[in-house]
C-alpha cells in the first residue's frame, strides 16, 4: 500500500517534467509574445522588456533556466502581472478556487449519489423518469446559461444569494449551485448506471433469497459495486473543480484561479500558463491516486492486481 503510493508519486516526476516541456515549447511556438499588444510598444521599450526577462535568449536557454527555477520551487515572474511572481498569483487565487470547487464537489456527491441510488431502485417508475430527465437537462445546460438563470430565479426573483463577489456565504451560494448542479447530474447518471448494473447481478438475487431487507440488499450488497464508476469520475473531477472554472468565476466575479488559465493563454504569459498547467497536472495525478486507492478499498479484486 505505502509502496504503491511511493511508486506512483515517483512516476509523477517524469510526467510533470513532460507536461512542463510540452507546455513550454507549445506556448513558445504560438505567434506573438507577452508584450505584443494591440497598441504596439515602441521598439526600444519592447527590446528593454525582452532583455529584462531574458526573452531574447534561445528557447533552449530559456527552457533550462525555467527548469532550474522549477527545481527550486519557483514558477518565475508573471509577464502579464508585472511585479508579481506566479507563486504569488497562485497563492492568492487558489484558496478561493479550492473553496468553491470543494463545496461544488461535495454538493454534487451529496445530491447525485442518493438520487442515483434511488432512481436505480425505482427503475422505470416516475421517480426514475423525473431524475433521468432532469439530469439530462442538467448535462445539456452549460454553466454560462445555468448561472444567469439561477441569478434571475434565485437572487433577483426570490432574493436568495448574491449575484457577484466572494465575501459572505450568500456570495458563495449561487456559484456553488451553478457548478455543483451540473456535476450532480453527472454523478446521478453514473450512480444510477452503476447501481443498475450491480442490481441485475446474480449475487443480488442470492442476497434477496436470504430474506434480507431491501435496504440491506441495496446498501450492503449493491452500493459498493455501484459506486466504483462514480469514484473513478469524482477523483479527477475534484482536481478540475478546485483549479477553478473560468466561466463560473467570470459570471460571478470571483477572484479564483480559473481566469488565470484563460487570460494567461491570451496574454502569452508564459510562466503563468506553465504554472497553472503544472498545478493542474499535479492535482490530477494526486486525485487519480486517491480514486485508485478508494476503488481498491471498495473492490477486493482490485487490491490484488494493484500491489
Amino acid at each position: 500500500m505505502l509502496q504503491l503510493i511511493i511508486r506512483r508519486l515517483l512516476q509523477a516526476i517524469p510526467v510533470l517534467f513532460l507536461i512542463a516541456t510540452a507546455t513550454f515549447f507549445l506556448i513558445h511556438l504560438a505567434p506573438g509574445g507577452p508584450f505584443h499588444q494591440e497598441r504596439p510598444l515602441s521598439p526600444q521599450v519592447l527590446e528593454a522588456l525582452n532583455a529584462h526577462y531574458g526573452l531574447n535568449d534561445p528557447w533552449i536557454v530559456q527552457y533550462g533556466r525555467y527548469l532550474n527555477h522549477l527545481l527550486h520551487g519557483e514558477l518565475g515572474p508573471s509577464y502579464g502581472h508585472p511585479g508579481h511572481t506566479v507563486n504569488e498569483l497562485i497563492a492568492q487565487s487558489l484558496p478561493v478556487s479550492i473553496e468553491l470547487g470543494l463545496w461544488a464537489w461535495v454538493f454534487s456527491l451529496i445530491v447525485g449519489i442518493p438520487l442515483g441510488v434511488w432512481a436505480a431502485e425505482k427503475q422505470h417508475r416516475w421517480f426514475d423518469r423525473v431524475c433521468s430527465t432532469v439530469s439530462t437537462l442538467g448535462l445539456c445546460l452549460p454553466t454560462f446559461v445555468l448561472g444567469p438563470l439561477l441569478m434571475l430565479g434565485l437572487a433577483v426573483g426570490l432574493g436568495i444569494g448574491n449575484v457577484c463577489g466572494w465575501g459572505s456565504w450568500e456570495d458563495r451560494l449561487l456559484p456553488v449551485l451553478t457548478l455543483g448542479l451540473v456535476h450532480a447530474a453527472y454523478v446521478l447518471r453514473l450512480t444510477r448506471g452503476g447501481m443498475l448494473e450491480v442490481l441485475n447481478q446474480d449475487f443480488i438475487r442470492t442476497a434477496r433469497a436470504k430474506g434480507l431487507s431491501g435496504w440491506t440488499v441495496l446498501f450492503k450488497h449493491a452500493l459498493r459495486g455501484g459506486l466504483l464508476s462514480v469514484v473513478a469520475f469524482a477523483g479527477p473531477q475534484l482536481s478540475a473543480l478546485v483549479t477553478g472554472s473560468f466561466v463560473v468565476e467570470t459570471i460571478f466575479h470571483i477572484p479564483g484561479l480559473g481566469r488565470h488559465f484563460v487570460q494567461a493563454a491570451f496574454n502569452r504569459d508564459y510562466t503563468l500558463i506553465l504554472g497553472t498547467t503544472l498545478l493542474y497536472g499535479a492535482l490530477i495525478i494526486v486525485m487519480n491516486l486517491m480514486a485508485d486507492l478508494m476503488q481498491a478499498w471498495l473492490n477486493p479484486r482490485l487490491r490484488v492486481s494493484m500491489l
Partner: peptide
Amino acid sequence: SSSLNPYL
C-alpha cells in the same frame, strides 16, 4: 462464480 458477492 456470480452468485456470491465479490465485494464482501
